[in-house]
Design a protein around this nucleic acid. Structure first.
Lengths: 356, 356
DNA sequence: TTGAAAGCGCTAACAC
DNA sequence: GTGTTAGCGCTTTCAA
């Protein structure tokens, strides 16, 4: 039963800075400076310190560094929608991309993203050294924003936090989204465009609903809107069917503002006897790449999650590292990808705004 | 320009434990014990400490706690596939659910998940205090596993890490998946089942390919397999078309082992003149809920990401907290959800294995 | 050019 | 019961 005993195998203690220093016959200070490229050291001492560290397999303790530095370069990330199914957001192509792009951009700036559940409680994040938290699409009465601000953690969210101290926002231009699409429908001759939107308290959905109302009023067209009980393919497809079947006069265009699978929307239209785009123009807000592969391909409106993520992280960095204290916001324009499903007289596909 | 000057607004320094102690007229120890529910304190002292902490808005510094505790309760999470598009994994319903379920289960056990990119380098995680890293579906030559083990960070991955010290695994039973599906096809009378699988170096895809070969040999049926150049709807749909159009005799069943959108697979079959399920039985490995909403609904094989995630986190906790040192693994069975697309003679939907 | 020492904020022995 | 003190591992003045 010596230290070598196979029975007693301890998890060999980690190599610390002081161990490297002792081994190299130097001080902690010197080794630290050598490793971090700071201070004024002779090249050979620096090299010796580095070599010793390497051969000993030294890896600095991240927690100690964070404590010393006063920040952890860790950003919390929550998606507010669907607090009762806190993780389903990842199944939406939009949030999947937003999440991926946020993590990628953050990492590029030296920050890592910690995944938090929708509607998460203090207890779930208060033990984490978060420098900031991103709250994507909070629902109207979401407590988390207030809790975070009370805990003095800077919050980055959508425009609903506008004006709160230490809260900053990036938002998708919902009015732009509605106008772009409905103007396009109108240009193709549609007179009875219908809207399907989830009945959520998310800011974006509320704004879309309002913008649609305004647009219809301004254009003197009937306001055909159906609210889906919740997001998700099932409810949205049912809402689509309601929209397509309802009323004495059928709609001649359909704008689906929900993360429904474009192939399913197309199928639903067919089941109701529509020819797309002959009888019905179709456009979906979607990042689902499947839209390109249907017959006909489906026109989509991209909310540009990549651009939203980049704008968000830029803002985080500006606030955290350059001390921008004033509340500030960024509005990101959408992108309409016109495809055959919304074009009466075939014409080459076209993109109406800058890429990504 | 006094301390009160509106111009000089500093970010008021955070309240520390010692501040609370001073304010309450107690020592750090006492306040710490009061807040953590440890030690032997009189109820009124404990209450006083807590009250003072609350009114002062005290929040313990997470980094300091981590340093003291020696661990950070942070788990890294990487998906190996597609290192050239490091974040696209989130767009796959399987990985989206795996990711969500992993984060949820981990949080339930007091660990948070940090998102890391596929093919991430030392520099991206070495500054994080990670207690462990989960590497989902590493590709064959992925460096990250070795780098992590060299850095003495426990790795949790698939069976490809079996036998490495400090590496543990959870895997989906690929053989089970193939047998379940092909047996089902055979029971429905299929004699020419075709397989579509991505040409990836992921362990799962390689195993499926091999298991399919074995099954066909054992059953004396022709081995109809098409490899998609890569995952993703486009390549997979093209591979499906190749499989459906190829050879003098057309296949009578199709098993798509790739995260293709089930509605698109169905459309492809129709374009090639197949009636599903009349001429062609269809089953997809997919977690995509859209499969339920097609006409006919598509039979899917679930890889049970929720169960995989739970098994993974259980293992992490067992290793980290109960010191299980020996390499250990868990094999998770799949679930076949039979729907109309693979049933010749209509019969009630059925589930062949335990839920989730 | 290098080293000693202080201290980031917290918890846990160990005294009192 | 409550307080004093010693670190956790690192970076950084500051002195030599």
């Amino acid at each position: 039963m010596t230290e070598d005993s196979r029975l007693g195998e301890q998890p060999a203690p980690r190599v610390r800075l002081v161990d490297v220093a002792r081994e190299a016959g130097l001080s902690k200070t010197t080794v630290s400076a050598a490793l971090n490229g700071t201070g004024r050291l002779s090249p050979d001492v620096r090299e010796r310190a580095r070599e010793t560290a390497r051969t000993m397999g030294y890896r600095p303790n991240a927690s100690a560094r964070q404590l010393r530095a006063g920040r952890a370069r860790l950003i919390g990330y929550v998606v507010g929608e669907l607090a009762d199914a806190p993780w389903t957001f990842l199944e939406s192509p939009y949030f999947a991309r937003l999440t991926g792009a946020t993590a990628a951009t953050a990492l590029g700036r030296g920050y890592a993203i910690v995944l938090l559940p929708a509607g998460s409680l203090q207890s779930e994040w208060s033990t984490l050294p978060l420098d900031a938290v991103i709250v994507a699409d909070p629902v109207a009465d979401d407590r988390i924003v207030e809790d975070l601000l009370a805990a003095r953690i800077p919050v980055f969210s959508d425009r609903s936090v506008e004006g709160r101290p230490e809260a900053h926002w990036v938002d998708v231009d919902a009015v732009d989204a509605v106008h772009r699409t409905l103007d396009h429908f109108a240009a193709q001759g549609a007179r009875r465009p219908a809207l399907v939107v989830p009945d959520s308290t998310t800011r974006f959905h509320r704004e879309v609903f309002a913008a649609h109302h305004d647009w219809c009023t301004a254009h003197g067209l009937p306001e055909l809107a159906v609210r889906a009980a919740e997001p998700g393919n099932g409810p949205v497809v049912r809402a689509v069917e309601t929209a397509l079947g309802a009323g004495p006069e059928r709609p001649d265009a359909l704008f689906v503002v929900a993360e429904a699978s474009p192939p399913l929307v197309l199928d639903a239209a067919r089941r109701h006897g529509y020819d797309v785009p002959g009888d019905l123009l179709v456009a979906c807000i979607s990042e689902d790449e499947a839209a390109v592969h249907t017959e006909p391909p489906v026109t989509t409106l991209s909310l540009r999650p990549g651009a939203v993520a980049e704008a968000g992280i830029e803002l985080v960095v500006a606030v955290l590292e350059h001390g921008r204290r004033e509340t500030s916001g960024v509005l990101v324009p959408v992108r309409l990808d016109v495809r055959a499903s919304s074009v009466r007289h075939p014409q080459p596909p076209n993109t109406s705004s800058p890429p990504t």
